[in-house]
Amino acid sequence: MKRLFSREIKNTSILHLLLMATVFAFLLNGCGKRTVFYPVPEEQFPVEQQKGVPTVPKGYSSGPANALYQDATQAMAAGAFDRAELSLERALRIEPGNPYYWYTMGKVKYRQGANNQAIQFCLKSKSLAGRDSKLIRMNDELIDQIRRETSS
């Protein structure tokens, strides 16, 4: 859908002012803290340990890429990390901006023992995560874990 509001507000219309007023009322109502409207991923994500039907992060799935992503999680569950990598690369060709796929790629690289690349994929995921604080935290945790393991 076309964006309703562009970054640049060129014409200040009455309608716009009314909308602004509504928004201020909204803010004054105790919602001053930034609201995260991005879809919240499932609790269990990532799901490579889970056999059977993998969970799909809500709002981040589109049919074909998601099917490939599911292939990847199943391959991970079976310990076939190279196959998981291939499926994720294909998923990323269709949906290159999906930060969850990049994060899962980081997981795959970690399991393959390619720690440096694992960290880099997590950084990539973070750069695309916007304000999805949960995903950012998941990435940070994996990065920390790798750094702890490699330093000890």
Binding site: M1, R3, L4, F5, R7, L19, M20, V23, F24, F26, L27, G32, R34, T35, F37, Y38
Partner: peptide, 13 residues
């Protein structure tokens, strides 16, 4: 802040 909220509504829609 207002703009961010508008954007968020936009994202939701």
């Amino acid at each position: 802040t207002a703009r961010e909220v508008l954007d968020s509504i936009d994202d939701l829609m």
